[in-house]
């Protein structure tokens, strides 16, 4: 059981990470991503863990014995897996992005009870810059760059069959990452390579606003956007920032944006925990919680409303952490190591 220990700041909200179980995947290669998905089969319905290695994706179910058993594995011999694309609210279906340096394919993974085989149909191909699963079984992606860029929302059925494709008006800059807006189902945000925030109307495909943020960090990533009282609160990270001390190198930043006037301001920086040096490597934001793997090998968790680090997971004897993901239930944090070890922590 680990928590932030800071005797000076007793008034801070402290969280707790309690390890509940572990699983070992990808014995032969490096763990590239992980996540959770509700899975319904003939004999069980359960929250399962998904692990991705370069050449395979596996679905794991927690057994009564306390161990994790492999339910299905999808193999990829031609193009390596880059990431799992979470699909909010979707059951029994996993989405993965494959490619070399950039994403070249997006595939859905499922099990067909008709013929008893796992399937991996192709959803999209091309030079894909960014992809995000949206609520109500939609997937947004951007292909190409600059003037040739195509931004598209794909609607799909419960079984993963594509139903409709809607084009969004492309911005003049290449999209780096998309983010949904909490509380506004029909709004979509993206951050571009020139650190512009772009706002779309998902229903009409209109490009509503382009707001230059003027950051000195190239290649920032937007994770999450909250809408409140006419303002947008955007959570950003800077994976390519130079390593320096924690005061000037926050893990996450929150920027407030007035979409009506296209003016923005920095609102809050989430600093590294006391005594921890380095910088943000990768992470995920879910609900009001942000988790990040730091170059020091730690995983740190922040409460976005309080703006404070609430828990810290030091590297264990087996090695440093390389991945941090929230489960779809919000209450669990998955901590992964390159050798394929996945540790499941309950976060309170």
């Amino acid at each position: 059981k680990v928590a932030v220990e800071d005797p000076v700041e007793d008034s801070q909200r402290k969280g707790s990470l309690q390890m509940t179980s572990t699983l070992k995947s990808c014995s032969a290669s490096c763990l590239v991503d992980m996540g959770t998905v509700w899975w319904e089969a003939a004999d069980f319905t359960a929250l399962c863990v998904v692990t991705a290695c370069e050449a395979s994706v596996s679905l794991w179910r927690h057994l009564e014995s306390g161990h994790w058993g492999s339910v299905h594995t999808w193999h990829f011999t031609k193009v390596p897996v880059i990431q799992i694309v979470p699909l909010p609210g979707v059951q029994s279906l996993v989405c993965v992005a494959l490619g070399g340096l950039e994403i070249s394919e997006i595939r859905f993974l499922f099990y067909s009870s008709e013929d008893g085989c796992v399937k991996q149909p192709l959803v999209k191909t091309g030079n894909i810059n960014a992809v995000l699963g949206l609520k109500n079984r939609r997937l947004v992606s951007s292909c190409g760059s600059l003037q040739d860029q195509e931004v598209e929302v794909l609607s799909f059925s419960e079984t993963g069959r594509s139903k409709e494709r809607q084009a969004l008006m492309p911005p003049e800059e290449t999209v780096l990452a998309f983010a949904e807006v909490d509380g506004m189902q029909e709004a979509l945000i993206a951050l571009t390579t020139t650190d512009c925030l772009v706002v779309w109307n998902l229903t009409t495909g209109q490009l509503l606003r382009k707001v230059p943020l003027g950051f000195s960090y190239p290649g920032s990533v937007c994770h999450k956007v909250y809408s409140d009282s006419g303002l947008l609160f955007v959570v950003l990270s800077h994976p390519h920032a130079k390593e320096s001390n924690s005061c000037v190198n926050p893990a996450f930043q929150v920027v407030v944006l007035n979409p009506k006037t296209a003016r923005s301001a920095r609102l809050m920086s989430l600093s590294l925990p006391l005594g921890i040096t380095g910088r943000y490597l990768e992470g995920e934001v879910k609900g009001a919680s942000a988790a990040a793997v730091l170059t020091s090998g730690n995983i740190a968790v922040w409460d976005l409303f309080w703006g404070q680090c609430t828990a810290l997971l030091p590297p264990d004897s087996e090695g440093s952490w390389s991945l941090a993901r929230w489960s779809v239930t919000d209450t669990c944090l998955l901590a992964g190591q390159k050798d394929g070890s996945v540790y499941i922590y309950s976060y309170t």
Binding site: N201, G205, Q206, L208, S229, G230, K260, R263, S264, A265
Partner: peptide, 23 residues
């Protein structure tokens, strides 16, 4: 942040921008 930093705030910004933006 005061309203002067960010300019006048509109609760209905999404509808207003959607009515102004080209289709």
């Amino acid at each position: 942040h005061s309203e002067s930093d960010l300019g006048p705030i509109s609760i209905n910004w999404f509808e207003e921008l959607s009515s102004e933006a080209p289709l």
